[in-house]
């Protein structure tokens, strides 16, 4: 009887060790793909010349103005607001909620937890729901609005599914099936210090983590490149000063 229980415990320990190793490797790999992929992409953008001045109207005349313009675009989605209020509403809610959720999750990666992360904790929970609501709205448009249905690809739907599944599994752990977050934090801190700690073998958590790793891995090979792309867009990051400053790039010598 006792032997069997011991054997059971051994098997569980083995499972935890294997899971821990698997997810540790998964996250190292996903992080490597994310960082290296983004670095390659962004270096590529940076190294490709923009031979002509093509700022999108209304363009600021100075570089300071350009910084403000891009800030306005990435925080308020100003152009999108002018284009379509529904897409703006759902898209903005989703992104702000995502930012809050990410901020909240920093508590798993920092010890002691930063003050701002602590402040964000209660908001982060509501943000999880807001994230889902935003995604639902964006997804509904892909079915309901004929024009957007026409331009949607399978990967557009899959990306929404992936993000929604991440949000839903996260909320499930908060409200339906708790996991051992102390052990999870130890695992995450251990990962970062290359000192592996056991990962709780909680099914919802495992799903959540696997999906996040998948998101990280596809980031540099998908439309998520809009995140770095917005900073490299010549339409947004050029100043309207073509008459004042001569703009000459590598291959396009006048």
């Amino acid at each position: 009887m006792q032997d069997r229980r011991l054997a059971e415990a051994d098997r569980l320990r083995l499972i935890v060790v294997l899971l821990t190793a698997f997810f540790a490797c998964l996250f190292y790999a996903a992080t490597a793909v994310l960082v290296a992929g983004l670095a390659v992409k962004m270096l590529g953008y940076a190294r490709t010349p923009a031979p002509l001045k093509i700022p999108t109207t209304p363009a600021p005349a100075t570089r300071g103005g350009v910084v403000l313009r891009i800030l306005r675009e990435v925080t308020l989605f100003a152009s999108l607001f002018g284009a379509n209020k529904w897409i703006w509403l759902f898209g903005w809610i989703f992104h702000v909620a995502l930012a809050l959720v990410l901020l909240r999750h920093l508590r798993y990666f920092t010890q002691p937890v930063w003050g701002v992360v602590e402040i964000a904790q209660p908001f982060g929970v509501y943000a999880g729901f807001a994230m889902l609501a935003g995604l639902a709205g964006l997804w509904a448009r892909r079915f309901l609005v004929e024009r957007i249905r026409y331009i949607s690809t399978y990967s557009d739907h899959l990306m929404l599914a992936l993000l929604a599944a991440i949000a839903a599994s996260g909320l499930a752990m908060k409200y339906l099936s708790h996991t051992d977050i102390v052990a999870l934090k130890a695992f995450m801190l251990g990962l970062m210090a290359f000192d592996w700690q056991p990962l709780p073998a909680h099914p919802v958590l495992l799903v959540h983590l696997a999906l996040v790793a998948a998101l990280m891995a596809v980031f540099p090979a998908s439309k998520l490149l809009h995140a770095p792309g917005v900073f490299f867009s010549p339409g947004l990051n050029q100043a309207d000063d073509s008459r004042e400053r001569r703009h000459v790039t590598r291959w396009a010598q006048g």
């Binding site: 490709t48 010349p49 923009a50 031979p51 957007i148 557009d156 809009h226 792309g229 490299f232 867009s233």
Partner: peptide, 19 residues
């Protein structure tokens, strides 16, 4: 040769704002 071409082909998310 053109950063615009490269970035614009990657960055679109099919949001539909331009449709």
């Amino acid at each position: 040769k053109y950063r615009s071409f490269k970035v614009y082909l990657d960055a679109c998310v099919h949001c539909g704002a331009c449709t």
